[in-house]
Amino acid sequence: MEFLEAHPEDVNVGTAERGVSVALGAALIAFAAARRRPVSSLLLAAAGAFLAHRGVTGRCAVYEQLDMGTAEAGGEERLAPGAHEDHSVEVAITIARSADEVYAFWRRVENFSLFMENIVSVTESGGGRSHWVARGPAGETWEWDSEIIEDQPGELLVWRSLPGSEIHHHGAVRFLAAPAGRGTEARVGIEFLSPGGLAGRAIARLARRVPQHEIAEDLRRMKQILEAGETPIAGFPRGPEDEDGDDAATGAEA
């Protein structure tokens, strides 16, 4: 499965652990298939898939987040905590819309609260500046001001947080024509910066918790809004939870 193998630099799971990971992952997926309790089945399957995937590719996202690993080469270096506190996220997504349409949606910053899960509100304050309010992991509120520092319609937006912001970062999104009429590639990069000092480092550590997959899910919602006009919702209605666990498979209502 060489083709699945992560780039050597990204391998952070040791050989033995990879074997165990694949076997355990496969077993979990099979086990999940036979489960009937609510919470567990999807979670088990996902956990199984995660284990199998990290085993096959040798790349563990959790180790990556923790900046550690069990891989032989470079293992020592990775076991040490990150030397710097800056943290960057890069995500790309393809949207079946023209670059102008995708750009226009991004340029209207109020739209960000439609697809970014943790953004409560964005208010345009004029001159390419905007005020952002976000919800933190413990329900606390984070606020910052942002300004667009480069604006090339249909191609590029670059922004940075203004002094005094609680989340200090800068970011860019580039809109590129995807091949064969596939629409637009939106390539997003965000770097969270440490303002220095003890408090700054604490904030930076919090910002580090904004994981890659959270941004990826935000971008997926952006794509859904642009392509389908809405984000999909499911789940209701459903039958009541099984209380007694064994009221016979007859279908008779008690």
Partner: peptide, 30 residues
């Protein structure tokens, strides 16, 4: 369930729709 607006729907591959699975991330993991 298909959105009609994504690359797959436009190519008549509607069972591969990009936008109709709210749990797409779990399916991607598997």
């Amino acid at each position: 369930i298909a959105c009609g607006g994504c690359f797959y729907c436009k190519a008549s591959l509607t069972s591969l729709c990009d936008n109709s699975n709210p749990n797409a991330a779990a399916a991607e993991a598997l």
